[in-house]
């Protein structure tokens, strides 16, 4: 097995061990660390984690597959998450989604061929007062308009070229 926590994550792991009554609680924090390190959570990394936490790989898979934010397959560099729940819907999230789909020429749930962008439809982001809300990787875009999307996508394209 070649996957291993990098130095920073290993240190964080050791620190966290002291903060919970049982090692079991480290499951979610460790899955986050793997995802940050690798971009997604592969079967190999789950085996590594199982050994570290004295669990079976199936235990880890069972948890990782329950939570929607854990990626069990690779996603684009920029994961564009469009909130589709009621308050955002009432404020036009469907138009925002269509606009992004048109710009990137892919549908929600798909990634661009160069794996730069993924569009994901997500449930309530807790940003109902500033709807419609789009979350790109970790960053919330609030009161989103198609113009804002254009500016951000243009910027991201320039940035990574």
């Amino acid at each position: 097995m070649s996957f291993k926590f990098n130095k920073e994550n290993e240190e964080k792991f050791q620190k966290l061990l002291r903060r919970y009554p049982k090692i079991d609680s480290l499951m979610l924090p460790c899955l986050w660390m793997i995802q940050h390190q690798e971009g997604w959570i592969s079967p190999e990394t789950m085996e590594y984690l199982a050994e570290k936490l004295n669990k079976s790989p199936m235990d880890v898979y069972s948890v990782a597959s329950f939570y929607t934010m854990f990626h069990l397959k690779p996603v684009g560099k920029y994961n564009i998450q469009v909130c589709k729940t009621l308050s955002c819907m009432l404020r036009g999230s469907e138009d925002i989604k269509k606009h992004i789909e048109k710009r990137l020429k892919i549908k929600a749930g798909e990634s661009t061929q160069d794996m730069k962008f993924t569009i994901t439809e997500v449930e309530c982001l807790g940003s109902c007062g500033t709807a419609p809300c789009v979350c790109i990787n970790d960053d919330y875009i609030q009161n989103t308009t198609p113009q804002m999307i254009d500016e951000i996508l243009d910027g991201l394209n320039r940035w990574s070229n």
């Binding site: 079991d24 480290l26 924090p29 986050w32 069972s62 854990f70």
Partner: peptide, 27 residues
């Protein structure tokens, strides 16, 4: 005080599911 991040599951707002999740399990 320790900050613990969830990972996108509405049901973990239910207090007993939240505790399950904090124990490293499905919510």
């Amino acid at each position: 005080v320790t900050l613990h991040r969830g990972a996108g599951a509405y049901i973990c707002g239910e207090k007993s599911a939240l505790v399950e999740s904090l124990e490293g399990k499905r919510g």
